[in-house]
Design a protein around this nucleic acid. Structure first.
Lengths: 186, 186
DNA sequence: CTCAAGTGAGACACTTATGTCTCATTCGAT
DNA sequence: ATCGAATGAGACATAAGTGTCTCACTTGAG
């Protein structure tokens, strides 16, 4: 009998592979009956919302774990640069699971999730701005754009991994290097 | 009475805003009756498939218009660099519309569309490889990864534009600059 | 003006997913 | 071994979307 969290995990995997999966599909993916799934999550919307909450929690954990606020406040270029490595690495570790949750319509439409993610974006943008002020990142790019660019590269990383174009062990370096120094021959 | 192409355009816009839009929604978006919509496209799948074809056509047009094959064959670094500018600029011009089509499950599952897009990816990858050989792009990044990275930045650009974080006129420079030289302070 | 083609509105049958409920069975704690 | 809680399977009503069809109406060409 899978725990509630295992059910959510199975649902997330299934929805990543097949975004239109029905409650019956999700129950099967978790190895439980449809009725049991409904005992855990009254409606499909509840389940999806909880999945969204889960993903946003992981995102927040990454920001917390990398201590972006503290490092940004320090203003130390070396620490900021290390923190950036750390943050992207944490994001990449989660990117497999995030795919669905961050793009699904029913989630991007939930007001509370949108509000939470806006706060997290603000934290991230503040960190990028600090990195610019410390001379770690170029100051001529809007910090909000940097946040989008990082997100885009995470999408790219996820796709590349899914298709098998890059190996997992190369991913961190690849993404970080592309983000920091770009693709142009120096 | 909107033409068939205008109907497709309206459907694309509507689906970008609301990926779950029903045939009734799409008919309303096009300003026609549901029966009329069904006269143009027998099934929803037909409509979606045609939308996918449309998007892939635009993608192919960008590759053709930039003449990536010819420029790659020339091996001229200056021409290659200009061509890259041109290509990204063309992609960005279409990015508004592509969002839905390239990520929708029902399209990424259509075998013929997948086959076509694989051929286009191959053309694009060949161009990046030529750019590496000519010393325009770094040779230490897999060309297939470069293709993913460009795609990711297009997603980022689309999002940034939708949210209003960047202005349309700045977009080309922003994306190209981020892709080529990265975000790090030189 | 006339007529044919196309259109919109609506009815219809069909399918699929959802959420609720019941009931027999299983499993664990006591 | 027994009791109780939880489960799986299935029935059920409901809702929503799909695809087909009919019919009255508009419109534009002849």
């Amino acid at each position: 009998m899978p725990t509630r969290d295992e059910i959510l995990g199975a649902a997330q995997r299934q929805l990543n592979a097949q975004p239109t999966a029905s409650m019956a599909d999700l129950a099967a993916a978790a190895g439980i009956g449809r009725a049991t799934l409904h005992r855990h999550f009254a409606t499909r919307e509840d389940l999806l919302h909880e999945l969204g909450t889960r993903s946003i929690d992981r995102w927040r954990d990454s920001l917390d774990g990398a201590d972006v606020a503290g490092v940004a406040a320090s203003g130390d270029p070396v620490r900021i640069r290390t923190c950036l490595d750390d943050l992207l690495s944490r994001y990449l570790a989660d990117s497999d699971d995030f795919g669905f949750a961050l793009t699904d319509f029913s989630l991007t439409a939930a007001p509370d999730l949108v509000a939470r993610s806006e706060r997290l974006v603000a934290r991230e943008v503040a960190f990028y701005a600090a990195a610019q002020a410390a001379g770690v990142l170029r100051a001529d790019l809007p910090p909000r754009w940097l946040a989008h660019a990082v997100y885009g590269l995470l999408v790219a990383a996820r796709d590349a991994l899914a298709v098998g174009d890059v190996a997992r062990r190369d991913l961190d370096t690849l993404v970080l290097s592309t983000f920091l120094t770009g693709a142009q021959q120096p």
